[in-house]
Design a protein around this nucleic acid. Structure first.
Lengths: 229, 229
DNA sequence: GAATCTAAGATTGTTCAACAATCCTGGGGT
DNA sequence: ACCCCAGGATTGTTGAACAATCTTAGATTC
């Protein structure tokens, strides 16, 4: 868990690493948060982390500003940084974004046979995970599908935005103590979505996707109201 | 190219301002870049800027990471930071984003009489500016309209993304040495867009908007190929 | 003379140690 | 109970230092 304070720039990724240890630290924290090691709401002390990661407080600070820019972490002046703990309002914002971008990608994105094949592979992966009972694999496949949907736009910026949104979604799931099989309901919807895309029925696909997003948002908000106080 | 700086942080906001001088410095630089004082491609020297702005090199650095996150500035390792100079590829990316988000907002955004009034006021402002021959006012009004369009989604994140995109557009205009009246052609299209929105004809409005964006992108790319390089 | 190599010089990336400002905590004192 | 007020801890910022890299100009070689 902690990076033993003694060994630093040993073999793992070169000796110097002069250029971007800031980005390196940021990605380490990002991964720990995504993995659930750092639970939402917990405080990230500068002193503890700087010593435990073996970097100066100053560069850790820079990594914090990066993560704050990604809203992976929230910064409260003179109080410190905390890993983001999305609530109902954040969930609503997430779905505002998704309801805008994803159906637009379906309607106007560039559909090549190659990407269609990839999407079909993803939904098959989701079905296999559901049959095997692996919740995390199913969640991963679902997220991968929606990531691929946004990829239809061809825009790296939107893809990045979607990645951030999906990361925040993962935080939401982590925040909900129990993880009921939220995703199993939606595998069929995803299958149908890809089927419609394959058939070229974009309008129907977009409409179905919007309905899907509405339902998912409602269910998530319900769970949040139930468990989270 | 150089930041001839005699002005310091005198009285305007006191000596303390302890909480967020980093954000303050970032906004100062952001505004200077938006105003065209700092031309695209010019280098931002840490030493010059830190002394001229009266802050430490360390906090200036943090402001740089913020601006780099907004892609207002590009950072080349061990070379320094430069104000972003968008080229053809960046323009294409900008319009990939706009073609996705803006028509989606038109199709599925929340249309209240209040926002419709605001949009009509904006297009009237654009028409007045065109009649008065003020290019900058016309550009501002055009950007304000498209900002309002994205506002229909109700998403602060998308609004922020659009702000970044529009800022980058301003950089593109700054990069084109001569600023031909790029916007005058499109005032009528904007008028028609708002008219269709008022009439509730969303599909037609979205289709027209997409055609508008295609035309604007093509014209911009043409200008870039002509002047730049 | 042109191209290449090399040795300063300048600039960026990072660390360290200090201080100012703010927040948090725990006691008195009404 | 409530409020005020020290003390301690943490964050925000600064300045100086050093390592690594890039740049530049001079020297060397062909």
């Amino acid at each position: 868990m902690e990076i033993g304070g003694a060994d630093m720039d040993t073999g793992t990724h070169g000796a110097a690493e002069h250029a971007h240890t800031t980005a390196w630290i940021a990605s380490v924290l990002r991964n720990r948060i995504a993995a659930g090691e750092l639970t939402p709401g917990s405080k990230l002390s500068e002193q503890s982390l700087s010593t435990s990661l073996g970097v100066s407080r100053n560069t850790l600070r820079q990594a914090f500003t990066i993560l704050a820019g990604e809203s992976v972490v929230t910064r409260i002046p003179n109080r410190g940084v905390f890993v983001a703990s999305p609530g109902a309002e954040e969930v609503r914002e997430i779905y505002r974004i998704r309801r805008t971008i994803e159906p637009a990608a379906v309607l106007w994105g560039e559909l090549t046979p190659r990407t269609l094949d990839e999407m079909e592979a993803i939904v098959q992966r989701a079905q296999a995970a559901r049959n095997a009972g692996s919740v995390t694999d199913m969640a991963d496949a679902n997220q991968a599908l929606h990531r691929a949907v946004v990829g239809l736009t061809g825009s790296a910026t939107l893809q990045e935005l979607m990645d951030r949104v999906l990361a925040e979604m993962r935080l939401v799931f982590h925040a909900m103590a129990s993880a009921p099989d939220f995703h199993s309901h939606y595998v069929e919807r995803n299958v149908e979505l890809v089927k419609r895309l394959r058939a070229g029925e974009r309008e129907e696909a977009a409409a179905g996707l919007r309905a899907y997003l509405d339902a998912a948002e409602a269910e998530l908000l319900g769970h949040l109201a139930g468990t989270g106080h």
